Simulated assay, not measured.
Amino acid sequence: MAKMLYSVSMSADGFIAGPGGDMRWLTDYLGPNPLVDELISNVGALLAGNKSFGGDDPYKDTEQEGEAFGGGWSGPEFVLAHKAPERPIPGVTFVHDVDTAIKESKAAAGDKYVNVMGATVARELLAAGALDEVLTVITPVMLGDGVRLFDHPGGTQVKLERLRFSTTEDAVNVWYRIKTS
């Protein structure tokens, strides 16, 4: 059965996007990363929030613009959104609630990962007890403001167990399992 993995690049000060969802900062850190390359081959479906799906693209103005993992992956994509666009987008299914998003994306992924994109979706999956793992690629930059990796007003504690740790010239990769007890 598919696992739900929140994979994300993050600044050293804990932001996954700049103010307003700006992803241009990530462009300088899209270099080779063997762990990410390995992950791509193990992704069976994507589940993104509407802001992540329609937001800034670090590959903007390149041939890879609009392509998952810069064109390194293709397959079924699911977007958790209140409203689907008027025109269908080939290969993209818009779902309106978390339970449907979980069910449909996991079915599409088979025995591979559902790669989760978007802090809000990840938080909703945690609340539903459906998020299994988190891969954080920490980049050597501090943004000072923006969208946090995990933000839960009023606070909550999510315990993690480290599964893997590796480094590249420009990143520190930490892969965790969500501890359920």
Rank of each mutant, 00 (worst) to 15 (best):
K3L: 09
M4V: 13
Y6N: 03
V8T: 15
V8C: 06
V8Q: 06
S9E: 14
S11C: 09
D13M: 07
G14F: 01
F15H: 10
I16F: 09
P19K: 03
G21Q: 10
D28K: 11
G31F: 05
N33T: 01
V36Y: 06
L39N: 08
L39K: 03
S41K: 15
L46P: 08
L46Y: 10
L47P: 02
A48Y: 05
K51G: 13
G55T: 04
D56M: 00
D57K: 03
D61L: 07
Q64K: 14
E65N: 00
G66R: 02
G70H: 03
W73N: 09
P76L: 05
P76S: 14
E77W: 05
E77H: 07
F78W: 01
E86N: 12
P88K: 14
D97K: 07
V98I: 15
D99T: 11
S105N: 04
A107S: 09
M117H: 12
A122Y: 08
R123I: 06
G129M: 00
G129R: 05
G129K: 03
V134F: 09
T139D: 11
G144S: 01
D151H: 08
G154D: 02
G155E: 08
G155R: 05
Q157R: 01
R162P: 12
L163S: 10
V172T: 10
Y176G: 01
